[in-house]
Design a protein around this nucleic acid. Structure first.
Lengths: 232, 232
DNA sequence: CGTGCGATTGATTGTCTTCAATAATGGTGG
DNA sequence: CCACCATTATTGAAGACAATCAATCGCACG
């Protein structure tokens, strides 16, 4: 397990001492179904995943993306069935740790317990930001790209402002409550403005500062800590 | 402290053994400001409060309502500064418990710790439902009324389908990302449809089943457990 | 008795959706 | 190897929904 998404590496080390196994989930398949009561804590090792709910009319709302190092099912600690599903956006390698062991580790180490809390608070803060941002289509697209850029940068997957963006425009729309048609137009507009170039599932941000200013993005809610510099 | 919003009364009892004090916050004033690092866990004793963020353009987004028994600042357990503010929708009585004592109680009692987790998961599930519901103005207004009804019913504040709804139409709009004008029109429409009557800060639902079906409301995400029957 | 807040209604504008058609791409089976 | 198909992206035209602008009303309060 390379990356555990917990800020303090000391707490991450606790996780690494627990036994884990890896499963493979193909693109578009569910990692966890709604209503599941997972016995494991899941971590995305490689690939992208997304939380989503299905509306009565059949449409889908993505409520969060999960990138390598993110955990899916911390809620399992409370032993509640999942109220939403989690799908693989790309082919995924998913590590899993028996939840009992995580609970035991949390009981033993207050610092580890706080790290789990902090992880949940980041999820929650992100949901609030998504709610707050859902006003203007153009800038919410830009803001999402900024968020993904910041998170990918923190795990070293950004190179000179460029990164792989495996989500389809339809999935971006599902995340932002926009039609794929409108996402396409907004991306076109952002490209014309020289802020973001997206093509063939690759994104490039020529001027990060300009983009972040334009869409009022501030990465503080992600609590990424000191990230590895993006250039490599 | 009458009501602590934790499902299992045994865990609630743990809280009740901790020393607490009560502060008064007048309507429209902040209970907690953005960036605050509260030393206390706050509980709404009486009144309504709301979490909110301010956008760059000055507009406000309400990301959740807090009713009597709800806790404001569980996140304080992770000792992170608040990323959003909390305001009093009505005059509020707010109880507070030193956060150190809560942390100590959680360390001692795994069941209490799980109860805190569950509380956070409900907040998170609610945020996801708000995101998912933000598609159709009419039904999102109806859904919000249903949510508030269900939560108020669980604390015995609903009588024969009627309850006090102290939020202004502007605040409802801020919660749903709608203008107050449009909220007004949607409420008018719901009234015409015989689903909800709102007037003078009082709401009445003539046929709960019909309303819940119409807006696809299912209270499960609130984890209210066995509620007190509404008739009294 | 004015003042301010909240609710209500009308008219107009604009954003986003819907419907539709085409193009580009990659994978599959014959 | 290539024809076929599914998926994704792209663009145009029309329509729907919600925002904006603006005015009035009712009411509580000083």
């Amino acid at each position: 397990m390379q990356n555990v998404g917990l800020i303090d590496s000391k707490e991450a080390a606790t996780l690494l001492t627990l036994p884990w196994s890896v499963i493979h989930v193909p693109r578009q398949k569910d990692i966890l179904r709604i209503g599941a009561s997972p016995e494991y804590l899941y971590f995305i090792e490689d690939g992208w995943a997304a939380r989503y709910s299905i509306r009565r009319d059949g449409s889908r709302r993505i409520t969060g993306f999960m990138l390598p190092g993110d955990s899916c099912s911390i809620h399992a600690i409370a032993r509640e069935p999942l109220d939403h599903a989690i799908m693989a956006v790309t082919d995924c390698e998913v590590a899993r740790i028996p939840v009992d062991l995580v609970i035991a580790a949390a009981a033993e180490s207050p610092a580890f317990s706080v790290a789990l809390w902090r992880s949940k608070l980041i999820d929650e803060a992100t949901l609030r930001v998504w709610l707050t941002n859902s006003k203007d289509a153009l800038w919410s697209v830009a803001h999402l790209i900024c968020e993904l850029h910041a998170r990918l940068d923190a795990i070293g997957e950004v190179s000179d402002g460029a990164f792989v963006l495996p989500a389809t425009q339809e999935q971006i729309g599902d995340a932002l409550n926009l039609t794929p048609v409108h996402v396409n137009r907004m991306l076109k507009k952002l490209r014309s403005a020289g802020l973001i170039q997206v093509r063939d599932f690759k994104a490039f941000i020529p001027d990060l500062q300009a983009l972040q200013t334009a869409c009022a993005f501030s990465p503080s809610y992600l609590h990424l800590g000191v990230s590895t510099p993006s250039r490599h």
